[in-house]
Simulated scan of single mutants.
Amino acid sequence: MTACAPPPASSEPQEPVLAVDQVAGYWALTEVGGGAQCELALANLIVEGVRPARTENCGLPIVAKARSWRATEGGFQLLGADDGVVMAFRRTDEDAFEEVAGRYRLTRAPLS
């Protein structure tokens, strides 16, 4: 007989992957300290195998590289054309995210 042991406990609690509707939508991205800003649209649908991301009015080259996104544990990632992670965000409030390095913040933007 073999016994099935549970996986070793992680030293940090695992957060669930966020639901798509908690991330999808229209966002205002601002640089902490009042720097550059962008508008970011995260689609709620899958097109050609990915959830599209679109930037508008954006002077930040790193953010402009984003082509898609995916929900993660406690946040989401912006992905480039090669599916590499461009930026990663963690949820800080119901309608707010912060880049994991703390340089940028996202808040839900009203649709005009």
Rank of each mutant, 00 (worst) to 15 (best):
T2K: 08
T2R: 12
A3I: 12
A3Q: 02
A3V: 15
C4D: 08
P6G: 05
P8S: 13
P8K: 01
P8G: 01
S10N: 03
E12N: 10
E12D: 12
P13W: 04
P13K: 09
P13A: 09
P13C: 09
Q14G: 11
Q14Y: 11
Q14W: 11
Q14D: 03
E15Q: 14
E15C: 10
E15W: 12
P16C: 02
P16H: 00
P16I: 10
V17L: 04
V17N: 00
V20W: 01
V20N: 03
D21A: 10
D21V: 14
V23A: 03
A24R: 02
A24P: 12
G25M: 08
G25S: 08
G25L: 05
Y26M: 11
W27K: 02
A28N: 05
T30D: 14
E31I: 10
V32G: 00
G33T: 13
G34K: 05
G35K: 06
A36T: 05
Q37S: 09
Q37Y: 15
C38A: 06
C38N: 03
A41E: 11
A41S: 11
L42I: 07
A43N: 05
A43Q: 06
N44K: 04
N44M: 12
L45N: 13
V47A: 10
V47N: 13
V47W: 11
V47P: 11
V50L: 05
V50T: 11
R51G: 01
R51E: 08
A53S: 01
A53L: 11
R54S: 13
T55Q: 08
T55C: 12
T55V: 10
E56R: 09
E56I: 14
N57V: 10
C58K: 08
C58L: 06
G59C: 01
L60R: 14
P61W: 13
I62V: 13
I62G: 07
V63N: 00
A64N: 06
K65R: 09
K65I: 04
S68T: 03
W69T: 04
T72M: 00
E73C: 14
G74D: 03
G74T: 02
G75R: 00
F76H: 00
F76T: 03
Q77L: 15
L79T: 02
G80C: 06
D83I: 15
G84D: 05
G84F: 13
V85R: 01
V85F: 07
V86P: 05
A88V: 04
A88W: 02
R91Y: 02
R91D: 05
R91T: 07
D93V: 12
D93E: 12
E94W: 07
E94I: 15
A96E: 12
A96W: 10
F97Q: 00
E99Y: 02
E99H: 02
A101I: 14
A101F: 14
A101C: 11
G102T: 00
Y104C: 14
Y104M: 12
Y104D: 03
R105F: 01
L106S: 01
L106N: 05
L106Q: 03
R108G: 04
L111S: 08
L111M: 08
